[in-house]
Computed example of a mutant assay.
Amino acid sequence: MSTLLEQAVQAHGGIDNWAKFRSVSAELDIGGAVWPLKGLPDMFQGIELAASLQRQHVGITSKGAAWRGTFTPDVVRIDSPDGHIEERHAPRESYQGHTHLSPWDRLHGLYFTGYALWTYLTIPFLYTQPGFQTEELSEWHENGEVWRRLKVTFPDSIASHGREQMSYFGEDGLLRRHDYTVDVMGGAQGANYASNYHTVRGIVVPMSRHIYAYDDARQKIDEPLLVSIDFRSIDFHTE
Rank of each mutant, 00 (worst) to 15 (best):
H198E: 13
T122M: 11
S157D: 14
G131M: 11
Y193F: 15
L101I: 09
Q133N: 07
L4F: 03
V182Y: 11
G97D: 07
G186W: 05
F132A: 08
R92Y: 13
Y180D: 00
P155L: 12
V152L: 03
S233L: 10
G202K: 00
D156R: 13
D230G: 09
I229E: 04
F21A: 11
T134Y: 06
T119Y: 02
D230H: 08
G170P: 00
G31E: 00
V184Q: 07
K151I: 02
D74N: 15
Y212L: 11
E135V: 07
I60Y: 01
Q129E: 15
I85M: 11
P130V: 13
A213R: 07
I78T: 05
L5M: 06
E223M: 14
L110H: 06
S157V: 14
T134K: 07
V184M: 08
N143H: 14
H237A: 11
L5C: 00
A50M: 10
Q133D: 09
R92V: 13
H161G: 00
Y212Q: 07
L107T: 04
S195V: 06
E239W: 12
H100C: 11
E142H: 13
T153N: 08
E48K: 15
G170R: 11
A217I: 02
R88T: 04
R177V: 00
E27H: 14
S80L: 13
T113F: 03
I221C: 05
L110V: 03
H98F: 14
D74E: 15
A8K: 03
S62C: 05
H89W: 05
G190E: 02
I229K: 00
E145Q: 15
D235Y: 05
R148T: 04
K151V: 01
A90W: 04
E135S: 12
G190S: 10
M1F: 01
L137W: 00
D230R: 01
E93Q: 12
P41G: 04
G59M: 14
Y120E: 05
F236N: 08
G190M: 10
E223F: 15
L28F: 11
Y197F: 15
M1T: 06
R92W: 12
D215G: 08
L110R: 04
H108E: 06
L49W: 07
G69R: 07
G187T: 01
D79H: 10
